[in-house]
């Protein structure tokens, strides 16, 4: 070609290639509005309450903030919350892994029923969950007379709190792992068996490592819920000071004693837990998305 072809030679083509100006600006406007709405929503319902908690907690200075934690009742509440989580989370971990493994890898009678039962705590109000325990283990309840006879105190004592917490956090691990394990299938386990591994060995060396990130994620959520549960625990607790109050219950008690700074100070502990959970959760999602949620595979 001896001459370059200038754009002016193709005016018609050029005009049809450039998108109409009005479409661009309209899309931009809509997009920014939606983003603004989402940010405003988040700010209002997430950021503002969090900031308020910390602001109120430190309203009277660091001294008052720390004083809230020197109370023996606060110590008892922290201890009880930790004990409850330390029992509930491993229990649900073991149960969840077992149930997910059975459901994902086997067909058996009652499988669908089990899945429904696992989901039950999610559809039941936490207060009702707590009430169920009162109705079963209370003096007037189903097992009441037997428990009284054998001098066992379940509700209005630590075991009741642990049970109620286990109930409401039941589904977390199982629900997270079932789709993951279903998607992973049984092929690797079968391979392990053909190589001479026992079922247990295969479970330990093949199944568990494959679900480790999903498991960590699930344990994280389970723990956050176990430590933060209010409704179910409130019903079965009895609110005995220094004995059966978890952190969330203690926050309510402090509030009811007009001790707002201390109340928010203790609440800030829980808010801090929530933030840490959120951060770890995000990191896990970012790095191990494939290993956490089924269905996100790119082949």
């Amino acid at each position: 070609m001896s001459e370059a072809i200038a754009p002016a030679d193709f005016p018609a083509a050029e005009a049809s290639l450039r998108p109409p100006a009005s479409v661009v600006t309209e899309t931009g406007w809509v997009r920014w509005t939606l983003i603004a709405v989402a940010v405003a929503f988040l700010a209002l319902f997430l950021v503002l309450p969090l900031v308020t908690v910390f602001a109120q907690a430190f309203a009277k200075g660091i001294g008052a903030y720390l004083a809230a934690f020197s109370e023996p009742d606060a110590h008892a509440a922290i201890k009880l919350t930790l004990i409850t989580a330390a029992i509930a989370v491993p229990f649900n971990l073991v149960f969840g892994v077992t149930a997910a493994w059975a459901i994902a890898k086997f067909q058996f009678w009652g499988r669908d029923l089990l899945v429904t039962l696992i989901d039950l705590p999610f559809s039941v109000s936490p207060v009702v969950s707590g009430l169920i325990y009162v109705l079963v283990f209370g003096s007037q309840g189903l097992l009441g007379p037997w428990l009284i006879e054998h001098d066992i105190q379940i509700i209005f004592a630590v075991p009741g709190i642990v049970l109620a917490t286990i109930f409401v956090t039941f589904p977390f691990v199982a629900r997270q792992l079932i789709p993951l394990m279903q998607e992973q299938g049984t092929v690797e386990e079968e391979a392990a068996l053909t190589l001479g591994a026992t079922g247990w060995h295969a479970f330990r060396t093949v199944t568990l490592p494959n679900i480790r990130w999903g498991l960590l994620y699930a344990v994280l959520l389970c723990n956050a819920r176990a430590m933060g549960e209010f409704g179910a625990v409130s019903v079965v607790s009895g609110h005995i000071r220094g004995l059966t109050n978890t952190l969330p219950l203690h926050v309510e008690i402090l509030y009811n004693e007009y001790n707002f700074v201390a109340s928010f100070a203790v609440a800030s502990l829980l808010a801090g837990l929530a933030l840490v959970t959120l951060v770890i959760k995000s990191v896990l999602e970012w790095r191990y998305a494939d290993d956490i949620a089924a269905g996100a595979r790119r082949h």
Partner: peptide, 15 residues
């Protein structure tokens, strides 16, 4: 003592 080789390899991805 049968050795299996699967169509989709079934290698242990974490090893």
């Amino acid at each position: 003592a049968v050795g299996f080789v699967f169509q989709h390899y079934a290698l242990f991805k974490h090893l």
